[in-house]
């Protein structure tokens, strides 16, 4: 499997605080990797660095063998990286369908003149978009909410919509930032199987940031653990849960002195 995303020595400081320090990752195509760590470990910052929202102090990020540091976020997105947000940024006052339509943006190549006069190129591409959006509405069971204003959806559905619209963009790499933040256990289970489904269906490459250990254990084949911006452990899930360093980061050290 060719390497899709290769990160080397990535560092980012906010003032004197290292949010991410010397982070590296080699992600082959089709793999799912989990990124875990306590609050403030630098997981979201890593995502922001990959998507170009933040500029790193040093390091290199190669996507498909192209260095993407210094590219604008929209350029990085059009090259095939999509992400969800921990704090949702849906297009609140637009309909569910419109939220999905907008995500297809990078694939629409027609000129304005095609749209103005309704020329074949425009009709063809818009049809392709509508078909894909219909498929996603079906897959995510959002069909009956098609004309609902996104901000008025129940929270769980908004989370789903956020993932659905990433898939409309047909990304090569999908970054999920705490996809089940604020969900109850039943919803988490459903979401977990949905993500598994779509992962195999579209053979997606994913990086998932998540707090819930069982959720991530069930999804990711490989896990990295961040603490205070430093990679403290990585490996397959069963190795990670038994790693004393990880237990220390999450639970603290056992005090043997007493």
């Amino acid at each position: 499997m060719p390497v899709l995303l290769k990160i080397e020595g990535l560092s980012k400081a906010f003032g004197g605080l290292w949010a991410v320090q010397d982070y590296s990752l080699e992600l082959p195509e089709g793999k799912v990797i989990g990124l875990i760590g306590p609050n403030g470990a630098g997981k979201t910052t890593t995502f922001n660095l990959i998507t170009g929202m933040l500029k790193p102090n040093s390091g290199s990020i190669k996507f498909n063998d192209v260095e993407i540091i210094g590219h604008r976020p929209d350029q990085i997105a059009s090259s095939g990286i999509a992400r969800t947000f921990q704090l949702l940024h849906l297009y609140g006052s637009l309909t569910v369908e419109m939220n999905l339509n907008i995500s297809y943006h990078v694939h629409l190549k027609y000129r304005f003149i095609d749209a103005l006069f309704g020329l074949p190129e425009f009709i063809k591409e818009e049809k392709r978009m509508n078909d894909l959006v219909d498929l996603m509405l079906e897959l995510f069971e959002l069909k009956k909410y098609r004309n609902i204003q996104a901000s008025t959806l129940p929270y769980g559905l908004q989370r789903k919509l956020d993932i659905a619209r990433c898939l409309v963009a047909q990304p090569k790499l999908l970054l999920l930032d705490e996809p089940c933040c604020g969900m109850n256990n039943v919803e988490v289970e459903k979401l977990s199987s949905l993500i598994k489904d779509i992962q195999s269906k579209f053979s997606l490459t994913m990086v998932i940031v998540e707090h819930r250990v069982p959720f991530i254990m069930g999804l990711a084949e490989y896990i990295q653990v961040l603490d205070h911006g430093i990679l403290i452990s990585e490996g397959p899930p069963d190795k990670i849960i038994n790693d004393p360093k990880v237990i220390e980061a999450y639970l603290g050290v056992e005090n043997n002195a007493t």
């Binding site: 998507t51 929202m53 604008r72 976020p73 929209d74 350029q75 997105a77 059009s78 999509a82 992400r83 947000f85 940024h89 849906l90 297009y91 609140g92 006052s93 637009l94 419109m98 907008i102 995500s103 943006h105 990078v106 619209r165 963009a169």
Partner: peptide, 15 residues
Amino acid sequence: LAIRESEVSAQSQGI
């Protein structure tokens, strides 16, 4: 419309 609703989102979707 996307820019009006959320610049962060619009940007991360290639706009």
